[in-house]
Simulated assay, not measured.
Amino acid sequence: MFEFFRKPQPKTALQGRLLDARGISLQLSGRRVLEDVDLSVEPGQITTIIGPNGAGKTTLLRILLGLQTPSAGRLLRRPGLRVGYMPQRIVVDDVMPITVRRFMALGGRAPRDELRRVLAEVGVEHLLEQPVQSVSGGEMQRILLARALLRRPHLLALDEPAQGVDVSGQGEVFQLIAALRDRYGCGVVMVSHELHLVMEAADSVICLNQHVCCTGRPEAVSQDPAYLRLFGHSVPPGVAVYTHHHDHRHDLHGDVVKDAVKEHEEC
């Protein structure tokens, strides 16, 4: 029997976590979609769900958001939890002219200053009065991310946030997500196809293929036999994964910014 708690739960139930899912399973038309999946997200933590096409990643995200009801399992969410959701894609009809400002305000009123603030946080404030149809794929992903920030969320739920972004810009998207996590102190649960794209940003990785194949830190998951059986290799050919120490960091444009204290970075 599935239990979805909407009423406030004792603090001991979540123990500081934003959400906690246990034994999540889903059957649709006799087909197993998810089986006995456990997942939790804490404030300030980036949890990434990876897996092949058809693994149930987006379905699991929808269940965590309360948009779909599983067949079995238990889901606890912190009372009053504010969630910012970024869908994998939104198609805007070319025959319906709409500006970024109007698109951002769909579903609720939003002051212009607030729209400018969140667009500036993701680096596309200049697009406020541009037609949505005129923006690039990478710009649209940033607009969707900005829209998710309007609620000043405790939890960001991101479905393929680098969808439609060229390879050179994908790393910048994940740097941006990590920076927003630090700024808001929010938790992040993110769906992605490829582990190598989220190596630097993720704190925890769940490798999903209807069930949890393996879970842990990105560098550990990339060498796990279950992950290697699914993807055939720890990283795609030509992509290096390494750990090093240095005395600088990179801003959202990839430029080097010197730090006084050496920090550890996984690339």
Rank of each mutant, 00 (worst) to 15 (best):
H244P: 00
Y184A: 06
V205R: 06
P8K: 12
L155D: 07
D93P: 00
S134N: 07
E114Y: 13
K262H: 14
G232V: 11
L155G: 04
P97E: 04
F4W: 12
G238A: 08
L75C: 08
R229K: 15
D38L: 07
V173F: 02
A13S: 08
S40W: 01
L60C: 06
R78Y: 10
S222W: 00
C213A: 13
E265V: 15
E219H: 02
I24D: 02
L106E: 10
P236W: 10
I177E: 04
A110V: 15
G187N: 04
A201V: 13
R181E: 06
S234D: 10
D203A: 08
V122K: 10
D251C: 08
L76V: 11
V165W: 04
A201W: 03
M1N: 02
R89Y: 05
H248P: 04
V100G: 00
E121H: 07
A157Y: 02
A120K: 10
V124Q: 05
E129K: 05
G73F: 09
R77K: 11
Q27G: 03
R22D: 06
D224R: 01
R6N: 15
L119Y: 10
G232C: 00
V191R: 06
P97S: 04
A146N: 08
R89Q: 11
R78V: 05
I24M: 00
H193K: 03
L180V: 09
L61V: 13
T243C: 08
I143T: 07
